[in-house]
């Protein structure tokens, strides 16, 4: 897939970064406002999708190879599993052992903030990976292999 015109590219270059930062913001504040790790991860992914659509799949693939997506994906999932297993130090599976903090503060809710970040990493990396794989697979449909 080739890219789009230079106007689209310039606008995308400006907007995509903002979109991704917003995604990080949404995943950080999931415990205060609607949103959370999954929504944040998908927003980050949407930023990358914009870049892919504007600049073409090959370019994105150079920046973010499939193997790197796998590693990030696995790490995000593993980090979330670790959140679960760390609870064992406090007495059991998935025990939220960090101090809860005060409601409405950014640092509150104990393990919920780190868990949200782990999920957003996982979702973003995984979906970007599968999207790139699909885009590259759809590049030139060959009827016979």
């Amino acid at each position: 897939m080739k890219g789009m015109t230079s106007i689209v590219r310039d606008v995308t270059r400006l907007v995509a970064g903002v979109v991704m930062v917003y995604g990080v913001y949404v995943s950080c504040t999931g415990h205060l406002t609607p949103g959370g790790g999954f929504a944040g991860g998908v927003i980050i992914m949407a930023g990358v999708v914009m870049l892919v659509l504007a600049f073409g799949g090959e370019r994105a693939n150079e920046l973010l190879a499939e193997s790197r997506c796998h590693v990030l994906d696995g790490s995000g999932a593993l980090a979330f599993a670790l959140v679960a297993l760390l609870g064992f130090f406090a007495g059991g599976f998935f025990v939220n052992f960090l101090p809860r903090g005060r409601v409405h503060q950014l640092v509150s809710g104990g393990m919920i903030l780190p868990a949200n970040l782990a999920i957003s990493l996982k979702v973003a990396a995984g979906l970007i990976g599968i999207f790139l794989a699909l885009v590259l697979a759809t590049r030139q449909p060959s009827s016979q292999e």
Partner: peptide, 12 residues
């Protein structure tokens, strides 16, 4: 849970 968003508190 110390969160303001109950859904997130249930979810996580």
């Amino acid at each position: 849970t110390g969160v303001a968003n109950c859904v997130m508190g249930i979810l996580l």
